[in-house]
Amino acid sequence: MTDLSSFAITARWPAKEPEKLQLYSFATPNGVKVAIALEELGLPYEAHLVDITKNETWTEPFLSLNPNGKIPAILDPDGPGGKPLALFESGAILVYLAEKTGKLMPADPARRYETIQWVFFQMAAIGPMFGQLGFFHKFAGREIEDKRPLERYAGESKRLLGVLEGRLSGGKWMMGEDYTIADIAIFPWVRTLRDFYEAGDLVGFGGFPAVAAWLDRCLARPASAKGLAIPARG
């Protein structure tokens, strides 16, 4: 039987099935990416709810796996060389899972790097900009009298949607006919911008029909429906 007891995080979130990949997450745009990918790939995994509303990412057990104190993180008992691998950062996890299985990533080297480029685009631009827009539009930012921050993030988010519109205008997915980790990285953030942050009117979402149609296709995938609700909040 696989022994994961050397990883401190398992003391707080015990592995009932230690032979399976362990996912430590919360259903945020970043958190659901990994669950969706795991569902798409059909990899057996065990999901653990790390409640960010209770600051559980800042506890010693979680910090032992991710010193940056952010979800998601994984512990793969069958990592490279058959040894357990602990990994954090959703983009890195998506690349790892794609390469581990040989799926959700084109085999052609040039297209592989092109896919990774769009994952990095999400990590560097879409996630930070949409997240800041959500803060200033829906949450505590509303209390700030100076509206320039909101205007700055709304304008930049609209510009980024334009980048996606240009990319998706001639294809079904971010990589044309291939559904990849690039789609999985990006679509939860677009969904959150429109549905959770309720910022569709603010960024003129109706002016990006290719993005809207792509988002609908992403959401229609069975793995997306499952992954968006994992881990269950109980």
Rank of each mutant, 00 (worst) to 15 (best):
F62W: 02
F62D: 07
L63F: 04
S64W: 00
S64M: 10
S64V: 02
N66F: 01
N66W: 02
N68K: 14
G69Q: 14
G69S: 07
K70V: 11
K70L: 14
I71R: 08
P72R: 06
P72Q: 08
A73N: 07
A73P: 01
A73F: 01
I74N: 09
I74M: 09
I74R: 09
L75D: 09
D76P: 02
D76R: 07
P77H: 06
P77W: 00
P80W: 04
P80Q: 14
G81T: 09
G81F: 02
G82M: 09
P84V: 07
L85M: 15
L85Q: 12
L87N: 08
L87C: 10
F88N: 13
S90A: 15
G91I: 07
A92I: 10
A92C: 15
L94S: 12
Y96V: 07
L97M: 10
L97P: 08
L97I: 07
E99L: 02
E99A: 02
K100E: 07
K100G: 03
T101C: 14
G102F: 01
K103Y: 02
K103I: 11
L104Y: 02
L104Q: 13
M105V: 04
D108M: 05
P109M: 11
P109K: 00
A110W: 08
A110T: 13
A110G: 10
R111S: 12
R111D: 14
Y113N: 09
E114A: 14
E114S: 12
I116M: 12
Q117M: 08
Q117C: 00
Q117I: 04
W118G: 03
V119P: 01
F121T: 10
F121D: 07
Q122S: 05
Q122K: 05
M123E: 08
M123Q: 12
A124Y: 00
A125I: 05
I126A: 09
I126R: 11
I126N: 09
I126E: 10
G127F: 02
G127S: 11
P128K: 02
M129G: 03
F130I: 11
G131Q: 07
G134D: 01
F135V: 14
H137G: 04
K138W: 00
F139V: 07
A140G: 14
G141M: 07
E143W: 01
E143Y: 05
I144M: 11
E145I: 11
E145N: 12
R148N: 14
Y153L: 12
Y153I: 12
Y153S: 10
A154T: 08
G155E: 03
S157D: 06
K158F: 01
R159I: 01
R159V: 04
L161R: 13
G162T: 12
G162F: 02
G162R: 08
V163F: 00
V163K: 13
V163H: 04
V163S: 08
E165P: 03
G166L: 05
L168N: 06
L168I: 04
S169N: 08
G170V: 00
G170R: 09
G170K: 11
G170I: 06
G171R: 13
G171Q: 15
K172S: 13
T180A: 12
T180K: 07
I181L: 13
